[in-house]
């Protein structure tokens, strides 16, 4: 699946590693359960990421937040929206500033919601969707509610208009 960041397809250097397989030398993504059981591998310089199931409580990641390069959240179906809450918590409560990646059934029509919740990387399900991403992200000039993405809200715009 192509990985999209900032509207463009980019190479994905991270290898997905199963529960019991040996860690490769380069960048790797390990399942959450493995990270919790083994802790961070010692003496490794290559970046590490974690694959998080959407039923998991992301507070479990708090001790590792600063050391993780990537957190991958899962959309098994696009209609299953649990990872939106996980994403906001990771960004807004636990201060995760690395790559927050959406994986699974990731489609163009949800990408704006994802960005607003803090995602910045997408394993896109349909390559045909990619050209539409930029369009989708620009579809709304204003939004109603504040999230951690810092987009200007209609409330901000009103405040500015009243102050002026």
């Amino acid at each position: 699946m192509p990985l999209v960041k900032q509207g463009a397809v980019v190479p994905d250097p991270f290898a997905r590693v199963a529960d019991d397989a040996a860690l490769p030398e380069g960048p790797a993504l390990v399942p959450l359960a493995r990270l919790l059981a083994d802790g961070l591998p010692e003496g490794r310089n290559a970046p590490l990421g974690v694959l998080v199931p959407n039923a998991a409580d992301v507070a479990l990641l708090a001790p590792f937040i600063g050391q993780l390069a990537v957190i991958v959240l899962d959309f098994p179906k696009f209609r299953d929206g649990r990872a939106y809450s996980q994403a906001r918590l990771l960004r807004e409560r636990f201060g995760f500033s690395g790559e927050l990646r959406a994986a699974g059934n990731v489609l163009r029509d949800q990408v704006l919601l994802m960005v607003r919740c803090g995602f910045d990387a997408f394993e896109v399900a349909k390559a045909d969707d990619i050209p539409g991403f930029t369009h989708a992200l620009a579809a709304y000039s204003l939004v109603y509610q504040p999230t951690g993405d810092g987009r200007r809200t209609i409330g901000d715009a009103r405040r500015a208009a009243r102050g002026a």
Binding site: F78, R79, D80, G81, Y84, S85, R88, Q110, L112, L113, M114, R116, C117, Y140, V143, Y144, Q145, T147, I154, G155
Partner: peptide
Amino acid sequence: RQWSTLHPEFTFL
């Protein structure tokens, strides 16, 4: 109404 309109976190409850 305004808060819930296209709320990014709560569109796929």
